[in-house]
């Protein structure tokens, strides 16, 4: 791949850039998911149907998204491999200097939380997006149209406590990933400001919490309320 950069700065830049894209994606994703909680199954099914009917446009977006994931993963792996190579002998005692340090559990586990998400995404897509649809009888009538009843499948899916527990766990790890990731990608893109950087450093923590809670509340809510919704 001639396009793949060799320098550390450029590789990290790709990581930050794709991080921004993926962050924007999960914001939209969460907004869409919250339609599951409106009390009217039509809302979520209509949204899902609209997305599906975009056809080639949706595929294009999905390919783009997949590319962002791939570049994010490979650039992250390169940072990790460089790190292993750069310090072959580890410290016996490891400390945190405090003060200006932004070294946290989150910043030190990015590769782990990232890899968990990497395992999660295919499972998630396979079981929900590519889960049972019209052929399997999951149909609903929305605005006079016969559409896939994804809402029912999601509700059914989260009646399984194992699914709920795993989703909650992964979403907590997503929060941990975002806690460092959000401010870090801004710094990686070269944006530093004496007043704004502390703002998005703290903002990143809040954002991570909102995202994690937003995503994990949905399966819990569905499970607790049973088939009522």
């Amino acid at each position: 791949m001639a396009l793949w950069p060799r320098s550390s700065v450029a590789k990290k830049f790709l990581n930050g850039l794709t991080g921004v894209g993926l962050t924007l994606f999960i914001i939209v994703h969460l907004a869409g998911n919250l339609l599951l909680l409106t009390g009217n199954p039509d809302d979520f099914n209509r949204y899902a149907h609209k997305l599906e009917s975009l056809g080639p446009l949706l595929w294009l977006a999905e390919i783009g998204l997949a590319l962002f994931f791939i570049v994010h993963i490979f650039s992250a792996l390169s940072v990790y491999v460089d790190k292993l190579r750069a310090r072959p002998v580890r410290y016996a005692v490891s400390g945190n200097a405090g003060g200006a340090s932004r070294k946290t559990i989150s910043s030190q586990t990015m590769i782990v939380t990232g890899l968990v998400l990497l395992l999660f995404v295919p499972w998630h897509v396979a079981s929900l997006k590519f889960g049972p649809g019209v052929e399997e009888g999951y149909v609903a009538i929305v605005d006079g149209l016969l559409v896939r009843d994804l809402h029912s499948w999601v509700i059914e899916y989260f009646q399984n406590p194992v699914h709920v527990a795993l989703y909650v766990l992964v979403m907590l790890l997503l929060g941990l990933h975002l806690r460092h990731g959000v401010w870090s990608m801004i710094q990686t893109l070269g944006a530093y400001h004496p007043r704004l950087t502390p703002l998005w450093y703290t903002g990143g923590v809040v954002f991570a919490l909102v995202m994690a809670v937003g995503f994990l509340v949905i399966p819990i809510w569905i499970y607790v309320n049973g088939a009522k919704i």
């Binding site: 320098s7 550390s8 790190k83 945190n96 200006a100 340090s101 932004r102 070294k103 910043s107 710094q187």
Partner: peptide, 18 residues
């Protein structure tokens, strides 16, 4: 810097602290 086998920067900020 890359040739000398230093690692990449993950913005831990521990450098500024020490």
């Amino acid at each position: 810097m890359d040739k000398e086998n230093f690692g990449n920067c993950s913005n831990h900020g521990e450098c500024e602290a020490v």
